[in-house]
Amino acid sequence: MTKTKVIYISLTIGLVLVILFSLGMGAMKIAVMDTVKILAKGAGLVKNVSVDNLAENVLLYVRLPRVLLGLLVGAALGISGAAIQGIFRNPLAEPGLIGISAGASLFAVLIIGFEAVLFVTLGNILGFYLLAFGAFAGAGLAAMLVYQFSKTDGKPNVATMLLAGIAINALAGALTGLVTYMADEQQLRTITFWMLGSLGGANWNMIWGITPFVLIPVFLLPFYGRGLNLFAIGEHQAEQIGMNPNKIKSGVVILSTLAVGACVSVTGIIGFVGLLVPHIIRLVGGVDHRVVLPASALLGALVLTLSDMLARVLVAPVELPIGVITALLGTPVFLYILYKDKKKILQ
């Protein structure tokens, strides 16, 4: 069995286990048999089983969407992180670098800040989705601006993209700070909720809403594997081998923005996953993007779902911020691999 197969199989097994545990654990104790019964009933496999109404509600309307959201967001962050690192030829790159997070934050904060002007109260359904749409639009707009600014002679230039990204991030950050400063107590609370990044708001509408935006990139990005491999030896070199580097760049930027923008818009900003997950994959399974991309999606989903489960369970009934868990969980693993295998990434 090849190394690649081992990685895929262990990631899949891990992911299934994490999903099962996530569904079974939470502030509310639901017996294993009940869990199975409720899921079977929900899937229409069995009828007329008596289950606790509240347990059913918690499982089907709170936990299940939350686990699914974790899977989607984790996969999106993992695969986009790997792809963005690929086109920037920089292991420190992450989707936030091209302005996705900063743009989303700015628009979210703007909508919260000017809600009075817009005659929308964020407590209601329209307000909530307005926020999500706004954040998505902000992510897309920022990434598009960065992309446009990065063009030299009509071709996107990676170094300029990095600089443009830094500039747009700084600008969006400053404007976000300004709006935050002007916000009143109530708005500040909403802004804080949003900025913290949490899967807590998961519901089925949200899942239906972001699924296409996440799944399309997750299934299309692996096709850029060869192209991104060639990027590692240089854009010009890639072109000499018959690839069109500009198509790769625009494809990766658009797909990553779609995926990460959609996630950020419903969960707020969750750091770390996009940065470290691809690294862990590379350290374990080599740097071939044809493996790194799909494996990062799997590991991202696994890490985020696991982190969310721990965030829910560790100090139940309250929750820990998920960013704390992802960092606490991922950093030691990463440092261990780094320590053991540092030759793989350093001379």
Partner: peptide, 10 residues
């Protein structure tokens, strides 16, 4: 203000 649905429902 960190509150989760399941934490309440439990």
């Amino acid at each position: 203000r960190s509150v989760s649905a399941e934490g309440l429902m439990a």
